[in-house]
Amino acid sequence: MIPPSFTYARATSVDEALALAAEHGEDAKYLAGGQSLLPLMKLRFAAPTVLIDLGRVTELSYVRDEGTYVAIGALTRHHDVATSELLLADIPLLAHTAEAVGDPQIRHRGTIGGSVAHADAAADLPASLLALDATFVVRGESGTRTAAAAEFFKGIFETALEPGELLTEIQVPKPASPSAWSFQKFNKRAIDFAMVGAAVQGAGGQNTAVALINMGSTPLRATAVESALANGASIADAAALAAEGTNAGSDIHASKAYREHLARVLVRRALEEASARA
């Protein structure tokens, strides 16, 4: 219930955050909304000795129209992503995915960058960002680099971020057919993480992206499904391939076999819904 002791440090800019991280090294963790990190610390599963609070780095909270893509500051809260007029119009998949995260209280605190950096395999946003071929902008001591979503998620709670690096911006290309989206989150209770989930952007055929939640240690693109669709397969036939290349786990919520079945059903439903919306 009570986190172990730590030293609190506060950054008011990206530069300051990076400097603090360099100063404290491995002992430090960035604190964004804290809706994933603080619960881990309260259960004493994580015990960083320094927390660098990014809450005042207001320069990283924005949703900007950059023409062919939308740039979202890493510290933009889920609530603001979910209610962004720009995103609701141009990338509704992302806005609606943010709406599905946790509950209203969590969405008032949690950030898109925090969710991406935390990389829970059962999280909602990483999968949709993967489906949308997002690019992540990362700043470190040595400068700025970008990483494609496809290369960013390495394992459970593991990303391509090097120690001290800060995710600053998420760049999401505007889809050709924004309304051809679907987000299927399957759970026992509304508040639960997805037992399995599917995010689709595209109306079938070519250029349809399908991503899966909780079918492996990272979000996954259902490439077998995508290839089948690109080759003219029907939605039903393509969706039947949803579990290929996945590595779902078994736990108290679901067995691997059931997860694989759910993946097939959810992908089919997501493709049908995206198609109907197009």
Binding site: L43, K188, R189, A190, I252
Partner: peptide
């Protein structure tokens, strides 16, 4: 939705409200 579970060694598997499915208004 609700069930208290143990593994084969008697370790509780549902000892937090993340894992124990207390019903909410949404259900």
């Amino acid at each position: 939705v609700e069930e208290i579970l143990y593994d084969a060694d008697g370790n509780p598997l549902t000892a937090t409200l993340m894992d124990y499915g207390a019903i909410t208004a949404a259900e």
